[in-house]
């Protein structure tokens, strides 16, 4: 459903992405693993059109989307959940959801605030609270819920477990499992292998802007050398 080939990006003259290639099928969770600064967030931003790629192609659902404006890419059904969350702090929870609302593609039951509150019960208890007065975990749930309001068919989920308490990370894993079950494709970026292995089907490892390894989760768990080289801190 999402196919990225040869994606490169530059910042000034520095290569930040070097021929990144990856694929995510419908209903599949692929985790992009790598250390801080490896290029995970930049890959997602380049797919979303927020960082202009200097070469390469991104095809979503058969449509080439490289070079398109972010809002057009979002409207095609590709959702983006940024690492920094970027909640609208002066808007309430309901208003944040309203900003994300887009019509659902035909045949898909649209996300509504009620359905999202069932998925993230803690949000339902604070519908009129401004985003700026929520905890980090609540903001993380809100930013995912806000993107789901656009009824995407695939989402880019950038480090959702970062900085969250273990209990909240567990709840996040459950939510991701439920979303996958509903048929949503997810490209997840993570440093936390423990969290990633529980929710993902396949893994792709990125280091210094280059894809170094791809394979299934069991393969990754068996490949001690790969984990040692790219993921150990």
């Amino acid at each position: 459903m999402l196919r990225v080939t040869g994606l490169s990006a530059h910042y000034g003259r520095a290569h930040i992405l070097d021929e990144v290639a990856l694929e995510v099928a419908a209903g599949e969770v692929v985790v992009l693993l790598g250390r801080n600064g490896a290029g995970k967030s930049t890959t997602m931003k380049a797919i979303m059109g927020l960082v202009p790629p200097s070469a390469g192609q991104v095809v979503f659902d058969g449509i080439p989307i490289t070079g398109r404006a972010p809002f057009e890419i979002a409207r095609l059904g590709l959702g983006y959940v940024p690492e920094e969350r970027r909640i609208f702090t002066e808007l309430t929870v309901l208003e944040n959801l309203e900003v994300g609302r887009r019509p659902a593609p035909p045949g898909m039951p649209p996300w509504t605030p009620a359905r999202l509150f069932a998925l993230f019960p803690s949000l339902g208890a604070m519908q009129d609270r401004p985003g700026g007065r929520m905890s980090g975990g609540e903001q993380q749930m809100l930013t995912i819920a806000r993107t789901l309001m656009g009824n995407p068919r695939l989402i880019l989920l950038d480090e959702p477990s970062e900085g969250l308490a273990p209990v909240v990370v567990e709840r996040m894993a459950e939510a991701i499992g439920a979303l996958k079950a509903s048929g949503l494709g997810i490209l997840l970026s993570e440093q936390n292998l423990h969290f990633a292995r529980g929710v993902s089907d396949r893994a792709t490892i990125i280091e210094k802007g280059r894809i170094r390894w791809s394979g299934s989760i069991p393969e990754l768990l068996a490949a001690d050398a790969v984990r040692e080289q790219y993921l150990s801190v």
Binding site: P70, F71, F88, L91, E95, R146
Partner: peptide, 24 residues
């Protein structure tokens, strides 16, 4: 109004509003 909500959101972070599918 929805328009007003979008405007207030864009006042804070217009790039994010665009990434959510709003034509800035």
């Amino acid at each position: 109004t929805r328009w007003g909500t979008l405007v207030r959101a864009a006042t804070q972070d217009r790039e994010m509003v665009g990434a959510l599918g709003v034509n800035q």
